[in-house]
Amino acid sequence: MSLLADTPFSLLELAPVRQGGTVGATLAHSLRYAQEAERLGFNRFWLAEHHNMEGIASAATAVLIGHIAGGTARIRVGSGGIMLPNHPPLVVAEQFGTLDALYPGRIDLGLGRAPGSDPLTARALRRDERRAEQFPEEVAELQRLLGPRDPAKKVRAIPGEGSGLPIWLLGSSLFSAQLAAARGLPYAFAGHFAPRFVYDAVRLYRSQFQPSAALAKPYVMLGLPLVAAETDEEAAFIGTSSLQRILALMRGEPLWLKPPVQSMDGLWSPAEQASVNAFLGLKVAGGPASLKARLEALVRELEVDELMFTNDLYDEGQRLRALALLMSVKD
């Protein structure tokens, strides 16, 4: 039996807008994408929070979670993640308590401490830059708000309290790994854009994990960038759309999802090429055989419990087809 047979596969959606496309068309595709993921047996469909990024349509994360959950029936839907310093914990508890009431047993609350934006946008969100330092306290506050019903509390999340909503901590460094371990919460590492500390973070989380009412033993989910195609050669070609978008991110340019190109030569400098490749250090790309070999090696080396993929392809049909190709490696 394949090492991957019992490893749940999930998806992270940033709602990438194609060059020349619209937000409306993008979000309609995101729903079709989630429906196909559900049909194929994916475990979760999470939506990211990003602000003031032209080409990314996932700013109103809780709204999109409701949209996706309302158009599906079984797949878990959640945030990957809500950037807690941008929001009062009470508002987050009420929003996700409402989502849980509408779609019971299907909502996940993933939390991060980064702004999900640039400093100017963070100020427009009325974000206090010092709040990132208060992340542990705000996670604890959110846990209390979503915890058992207590009429004696002066401030209550209604709806929200008593929901027992699953809380995940997300991160790309050792800070959130350590906090998730101390709180006994599941941990998701953002390997899809920040692979540098993955081995240290997973090792730290597992070694320091303290069982809690939420979780008896450590649970690690790893985010990975995916480029799945029928052949390795096709994957190399269609994967240039993602390369162009990351290059644009590094240059501070709009993040439209552009058509693939035959070669990136002339589009980037050697230094930019190295930076983009480092960004995608955990990329899983190729035909089914290459995908399977790469994924089995990662699961074996990192002892992860679940894999979550970004799948940013320009052609919507190829993007849907990639899901079936990915699931085929479980056999």
Rank of each mutant, 00 (worst) to 15 (best):
T22R: 07
T26E: 02
A25E: 15
A34P: 01
L64E: 00
G20T: 04
N43F: 11
G24M: 07
F45R: 02
G20S: 08
A28I: 11
F45D: 04
A48W: 03
F42D: 10
R32S: 13
E54Y: 13
L64H: 03
L40S: 02
G55H: 02
G24K: 12
A60P: 04
H67P: 06
H67R: 09
H50L: 05
G66Y: 05
G41L: 08
A60Q: 04
I56R: 08
G41F: 12
F42S: 11
I65Q: 12
H67I: 06
H67W: 13
Q35A: 03
F45L: 02
A28W: 09
M53R: 15
A60L: 10
G24A: 12
E36Q: 15
Q35H: 02
A57S: 11
E36V: 13
I65K: 08
W46M: 13
Q35M: 05
Q19E: 15
S30Q: 02
M53W: 13
H67A: 09
A28L: 11
A37K: 03
A57E: 03
E36P: 11
R44N: 09
R32G: 14
A34L: 02
W46I: 09
R39F: 03
G20R: 07
A25I: 08
G66K: 08
L27G: 01
S30L: 09
A25H: 07
T61W: 01
H29E: 12
L27E: 01
A59F: 04
I56H: 10
G55Q: 12
I65V: 11
A57I: 13
S30D: 01
W46A: 08
A69K: 09
